[in-house]
Design a protein around this nucleic acid. Sequence first.
DNA 1: TCACAACCATCGCCGTAGACGATAGAGTCG
DNA 2: CGACTCTATCGTCTACGGCGATGGTTGTGA
Lengths: 289, 289
Amino acid sequence: MYELRHLATLRAVADEGSFGRAATRLGYTQSSVSQQIAVLEKVAGGALFDRPGGPKPVRLTPLGGVLLEHARDLLHRADLMSDAIERFRAGDGRIDIGTFQTVSNVILPTLIRELRAAHPTCDIRLFEEETDQPDLSELDLMFFDSRIDGTDHLLLVKDPYVLVTRAGDFPQGPVDIKELDGLQLVAHPPVCDQGRFEDFLTGQGVQPQIVFRTSGNEALLAMVRAGLAAAVMPRLAVQQDDLEIHELEPRLPPREIYLLWHAGRTPSPLAAHAIEIAQRVAADLPGIS
Amino acid sequence: MYELRHLATLRAVADEGSFGRAATRLGYTQSSVSQQIAVLEKVAGGALFDRPGGPKPVRLTPLGGVLLEHARDLLHRADLMSDAIERFRAGDGRIDIGTFQTVSNVILPTLIRELRAAHPTCDIRLFEEETDQPDLSELDLMFFDSRIDGTDHLLLVKDPYVLVTRAGDFPQGPVDIKELDGLQLVAHPPVCDQGRFEDFLTGQGVQPQIVFRTSGNEALLAMVRAGLAAAVMPRLAVQQDDLEIHELEPRLPPREIYLLWHAGRTPSPLAAHAIEIAQRVAADLPGIS
DNA sequence: TCACAACCATCGCCGTAGACGATAGAGTCG
DNA sequence: CGACTCTATCGTCTACGGCGATGGTTGTGA
């Protein structure tokens, strides 16, 4: 089998025209170079250099020329490989992140801005699929609103459910959840934490009347603004300031936003950095914990 | 430094999902594979596989994925290299041959036909430059009409000079060289052996009158056919049968056609085969030796 | 023609990379 | 909780490969 070390020696000898000078350049002795070329010649099955003797430079045989041509290519690509590894360890490379709407609006933009600032050539791919059973086997990181078996996790924020109304439709300040009973509301589809939240309300004997469901935050808020109904949704999903936000009393279990990654899998340096950034960004979110 | 052997092991482990099975496939023991991967991980500076333990298959880390991607490419190209060497040793590859007109017409066509028949994918390049000081440093083989210092050689044919006339212009049979004195002739330019031949005539006190010179055999013969003059040229240059060929007496030193190659340089297998074929083809030339 | 210089091949010596076998440790599954 | 299936590691040993020295070959200059 050919080895890269031998091929590097072949190249050096061809470039220098001398076993001795090649040895000097590579930090070997002349006899080592001689042996390495001898090994290569055995593997290749023929002489690679003609040795005229005396001070004349050695010269590639036709066979040596063929081998060198391929060797240069291989060595070049081996260098590219080393570089790629080095860059990857420094945080370059690809990262696949699963996300959902609120995170896409609130945390991800900052995360991506910082990530790209730190690693300008990295390749970030986002996957947004709203489902109860997300598949993170192909993802480096995933934002999700609950933990999943077989994952390590980081709790980023606790995001309380709030009632969103047009200004004046409700008295300012907290709202008792009993008032939600029978109330017309718009809300997210009952998947993920929204489902748990509504189950909890039901458990409390509170049964709102959901007149419209969509996973689009913007659409929900537009409905509120249009006077269709009030909305119950996590506070982070509300970035508007032309609507009133009412906390609910008594306190309900908030939606928890986790950053998940496969347990027992070594994260890429880029993913590790992303986790770190995400933690800091989430901690800086105003007023929620 | 990465070595191909290690990369091959990496690939096998990734394909098999298990150190042990990779070992079996490669003819190693499990502990060897474990060590090789450990070496690679040290060079790469991070884990290449996640080892879940138990019967679960090992799985590439992101770093391992990057390395494997490059490793597959390198290993594939190393295979191509081995194949290329193997083919070259079997006689495939490129051959550069220097030639001149007569040989191009008489010996080369057969040589090339046989060479291509034996090595269908070989790459034959011909260089025809008529000069006294040919440069064969870039050629594998060269046909030439004298020996050159620093070359090995093979004498292919001795090609006597003859007088070529229209039928009836000269009585049939040999012609004494004295008759050439003052005779109007067409001939090759006085390079290579043609120069030596004319010097020899001059030394004999014979001084023809050369009325036209060209290195084109066909043009010379056309002039003879047109009645401009007779021609003196090597017999092999005359492939026509509508003209008369007269031997010269006394016998003059014939043009010798050699096949030359650099002394002390290992020939390519293809060149070696070509030499062998050329020798046989030349020996089969009718009536000349 | 005779050192001399430049260069490669080869030999003996030696250190170590690496293959092997055995065993320990970690994880999964009934 | 044992049985099973993995990998990591340790000790042993071989052999690959580096080094220094030496000898042979070729071209050069006095």
